[in-house]
């Protein structure tokens, strides 16, 4: 009599999972790497980092990546951009302002997050337009 089966698609599942991962990050549960940015520690999950960034993919994909539990990222112009990028990875929301966009752009370039780089370029370009 027609339909043989049903697939129930939970449309908000991906955002529910990401929200829980963000809560785990904020509470330090199962975080397995510390990113040092200008001496400031940022705790995170390697699995989320490797899923979002070509740079972290290169670092963590091999067997050697298992033993990496502290990773220093560059200070200087990029430093202020790393925390917003980490928030983006865990929330899908990228906070940009004219003041922060250049450092987020620099950090996203370093972390090989091409789509964020493009979004930063579009934001900066739009902010120049009247």
């Amino acid at each position: 009599d027609g339909a043989l089966g049903y697939v129930r698609e939970f449309t908000r599942h991906s955002s529910d999972v990401l929200g829980n991962l963000n809560e785990l990050r904020l509470r330090g549960i199962l975080t397995d790497v510390t990113l040092l940015v200008g001496g400031q520690p940022l705790r995170a999950h390697k699995a989320v980092l490797i899923a979002c960034s070509g740079f972290f993919y290169s670092i963590f994909r091999g067997r050697a990546g298992v033993g990496v539990d502290v990773l220093s990222l560059p200070g200087g112009p990029e430093a202020g951009g790393f925390a917003p990028l980490l928030d983006f990875m865990y929330t899908s929301r990228l906070r940009l302002s004219p003041a922060t966009a250049p450092s987020v752009l620099a950090a996203a370039t370093y972390l090989q997050m091409e789509h964020v780089v493009q979004a930063c370029h579009r934001f900066i370009q739009a902010s120049y337009e009247p």
């Binding site: 027609g2 339909a3 129930r8 529910d16 999972v17 809560e23």
Partner: peptide, 22 residues
């Protein structure tokens, strides 16, 4: 007749919510 599968959308929450840190 393996192709007859209906997809039903579930708009509600899919998993438990980890309590927010106080």
């Amino acid at each position: 007749h393996e192709g007859l599968v209906a997809t039903v959308k579930e708009a509600g929450r899919s998993i438990h919510e980890i309590p927010r840190e106080e």
